[in-house]
Design a protein around this nucleic acid. Structure first.
Lengths: 214, 214
DNA sequence: TAATCTTGATTGATTAGTCAATCAAATACA
DNA sequence: TGTATTTGATTGACTAATCAATCAAGATTA
């Protein structure tokens, strides 16, 4: 059955999705009531949700599928494969930190952590667009740079985690456990420290003082 | 009214707490039903829970308060303040990884992530016994080592996150987003890589091949 | 008019929490 | 020692509330 007006229909659908994202991220899937979602989405009736979505689970799935891409880190195909590690890593780290400065981005990040913990199926969806994608891109890049001899060769999977881990931990500490010292530690400091330390430990042509690979 | 037998009473209380931890960690607070908890705790009636706990929230609070300490990392007072970074950091990292090899430890870790996201009060409790405690201990240690001149001086808060972050990220990727490559990357490799890379980047008397004091 | 859109009342299922009744281990007592 | 009494432990039926989902009726627009 064709809607009265495609644009109006889609706009209202998005409106409900936006409201649902806010409620799901702050309350969790089970505790989010249709009444809450209707209020957050500024529609007057919970019943209306069922005109646009099959049920609560369907709504949740669509929220995830349509809003999760905000969790995607910059991945420019192979454009940056040859670029300097410092440039690429800084860009990558900045991209992650910037994502969290955004209301919807932070909401998705929290929702990803909370919901994925209990629901493997949800975890798989998030993983596909978020962590796995970013990790894979970065791993390929690091492996290539190791091949080029610009970086010491270590386990690439471990290397990716050693780079992204500090940033993930920083965000969790700052946004979930509201640690004061994480508030005073600026994202910029965290980014530069992470990049510096990582490269200090991995760079071969070390302008800091010797010790390379065998 | 005093219980018939203190030991029996406490044993049964612990039995319910154990069951509740399993259900809370796999289902989440809201979706965990008293029936589930009773079954997991091997008691025959959901009603019995109310003989030992005021309500569901009280039960949850006691589960957290009595089982969260399992999340504590080794913190030996000031015993290790003077010890070599490699020794102390390896011990610390091992302690974290070992915690997750334990069924209850993993359950608590997941519960901490999932429940803390929505409930600042719960986050505060977890933070106190877990993250904050470990982070603070490690920060003091690293600052001391920087004072001694054994480590380069960088922002200590950032340093702690640079060290623990990779391990946290590794566990999240392995246990929540069930990434295949995290399965093949052993905890031991992750620990040694993390320690190596961190010290490679921070150690002053860089004896990365051979020994020597500066 | 004819279709979709919107509403809010309703339904049916679920669940946290209560409660009266029963059970069983101690203890008191003969 | 054997019986009665006390008291906490345990049960399962019950209640009151919540909430996802449905539905019929009315509003709106093409």
């Amino acid at each position: 059955m064709p809607p009265r007006d495609d644009q109006d229909y889609e706009a209202k659908r998005q409106q409900i999705i936006d409201g649902a994202l806010q409620v799901f991220s702050s309350e969790g899937f089970e505790k989010a009531t249709n009444k809450d979602i209707a209020r957050a989405a500024r529609i007057n009736s919970p019943g209306l949700i069922y005109h646009y979505f099959k049920d609560k689970t369907d709504l949740f799935r669509q929220v995830v599928e349509e809003r999760a891409p905000i969790l995607q880190l910059v991945t420019h195909g192979d454009d940056f494969m040859e670029s300097e590690p410092r440039e690429v890593l800084t860009m990558f780290a900045d991209s992650f930190v910037t994502m969290m400065d955004n209301r919807a981005g932070l909401a998705m990040f929290k929702m990803m952590l909370a919901e994925s913990t209990r629901k493997p199926a949800v975890a798989a969806i998030f993983n596909k667009v978020g962590p796995w994608r970013g990790f894979n891109y970065l791993r390929r890049y690091l492996e290539h740079q190791m091949d080029l001899g610009r970086l010491r060769r270590i386990d690439p999977g471990a290397a990716v985690r050693c780079f992204m881990g500090p940033l993930v931990a920083y965000m969790i500490m700052r946004e979930i456990f509201v640690q004061e010292d994480a508030q005073s530690l600026s994202p910029e400091t965290m980014v530069t420290t992470t990049v510096d330390l990582f490269l200090y430990g991995l760079e071969v042509n070390r302008n800091h003082e010797g010790a390379g690979e065998g």
